[in-house]
Write a protein that binds this DNA or RNA. Sequence first.
DNA 1: TAATTTAGATGGTACTACAAACTACCTGCG
DNA 2: CGCAGGTAGTTTGTAGTACCATCTAAATTA
Lengths: 144, 144
Amino acid sequence: MSETEAGTRSLQPDELVDTLVQSAFATMGVLNRICAEHDLSLTLLRVLAILWDRRLRVTALADYLGLDKSSTTGMVGRAEKRGLLRRAPSPHDGRAVDVFITPAGAELAERIRSDVARALAPMTDELTHAEQRRLQALLQRVTP
Amino acid sequence: MSETEAGTRSLQPDELVDTLVQSAFATMGVLNRICAEHDLSLTLLRVLAILWDRRLRVTALADYLGLDKSSTTGMVGRAEKRGLLRRAPSPHDGRAVDVFITPAGAELAERIRSDVARALAPMTDELTHAEQRRLQALLQRVTP
DNA sequence: TAATTTAGATGGTACTACAAACTACCTGCG
DNA sequence: CGCAGGTAGTTTGTAGTACCATCTAAATTA
């Protein structure tokens, strides 16, 4: 600890990035809590969101998630056991398996979406309607 | 479900929240990738950030993280073994243990910070400087 | 001082993710 | 056609993370 004072040196080289990261941690904290209340992992929540309006093969889903195929298999298996997802062999490729959301899964996703909206409302309500629109527009442009 | 058409892809009830969440996932994805490159968990990155300019007891650190004390103990133990953190008995309370960052830990945190800034730059550069400032200001107001 | 509370560590369990090996299937070259 | 090689998904084994319940030592209090 005999180095130069690391404390003041580099805490504000890129404030937007810092704010983005901090906001992300805060948001994920809320999401995590709500997911936990429903015995859902964050990854499984992503799966439900991704499969909301799509039907994907396991590999495509893994690509969306940035996970390994094997992780995805396990995930989908557990979710299928809980009735949130279902698997069906692809009609055109005997190797492939399509994964899609069940009504129960969609309902749970819906429920969590509204819980999240409610949980984040106190934060977003700090802004006027116009500001919210502006924030959303800006944020959308920095989100791929 | 009520008669508000939950079935017709209720993807627009709260667009700002959706965008916040999506942005959070994107940001955390980048963070996760960079952390993985340095064999760091996201939680350990948070620890380094929290202890950047502070020295905390295990319980206080656990509170910051929202984790159980025991999880924190394990985490700190592993990080200490890697030379990123250090423990010292509190001078005033024989039960308590202070945790603080080492120069190596601070250096790694620094490194990751710049990696993250670099990784996010292509996204933030979509905006002009003025827009970046505005985004940051707005985002800060919705982040506790 | 004895009883209670608090700080942290430990042990056991469950979940998540990965990599490597495995099975089934498709594709294309000879 | 028929087999070699690639692709899709699953299985198996391992490591990390987090929780809970329990344990020890130290402080508080009664």
